[in-house]
């Protein structure tokens, strides 16, 4: 126990404003929290569906929860059930085998709901494109509010995408 406490104290607080143009992004972060409060009352819950990604986007979604980006510190958390979610995050070009599961997950989320498509595949079909097995971009299957490009998008870009989605909801 002593070692654990010592390490926690030594580590300190790692959470930072995203490391690009400082001030503007710090503002972005604050705005995000404020918007979340305005629109959703207290917190934003996200449900993720991997609809056909290479798992690269998932790596970065894991990363937004690490101590540096600390998404949960902003009142945004990932939930296990679509019934608890406000926002659906979708990665990958949608494989035909995931089409039904994605639609059902979307339908299971209560209104008002937002959808963010993540990564080049989710935005425009990416490298896998449209084929016998793949339906391409997420908006070919369900309505999408915001797209975040990148292969994979960085944690900062993912956070900005979520902010944009929350901001555009009236």
């Amino acid at each position: 126990m002593y070692q654990i406490l010592k390490q926690i104290i030594k580590t300190g607080i790692k959470t930072e404003a995203p490391p690009l143009a400082d001030e503007s992004l710090r503002a972005g972060e604050q705005r995000l929290q404020q918007k979340v409060l305005e629109v959703f009352g207290s917190a934003l819950n996200i449900r993720l569906v991997d609809a056909g990604s290479c798992n690269g986007c998932e790596l970065e979604i894991h990363a937004v929860n690490n101590a540096y980006y600390n998404l949960e510190g902003l009142g945004i958390k990932f939930v296990a059930s679509p019934r608890h979610a406000d926002l659906l995050l979708v990665t990958g070009s949608v494989s035909r085998h995931m089409e039904v599961a994605l639609k059902r997950t979307y339908d299971a989320i209560p209104e008002p709901k937002l959808v963010v498509a993540l990564g080049d595949c989710g935005c425009n079909g990416g490298i896998f494109g449209e084929s016998y097995a793949s339906l391409g971009r997420v908006s070919n299957v369900i309505p999408v509010d915001v797209v975040v490009a990148g292969c994979p998008p960085t944690p900062v870009e993912i956070m900005q995408g979520i902010l944009t989605a929350v901001s555009c909801k009236k």
């Binding site: 991997d50 609809a51 056909g52 990604s53 990958g92 070009s93 494989s95 085998h97 995931m98 599961a101 490298i127 896998f128 494109g129 084929s131 016998y132 097995a133 793949s134």
Partner: peptide, 11 residues
């Protein structure tokens, strides 16, 4: 398995 079959080999 097979849910994320996206036709990589054909691609």
């Amino acid at each position: 398995l097979g849910y994320v079959h996206k036709g990589i080999e054909k691609r």
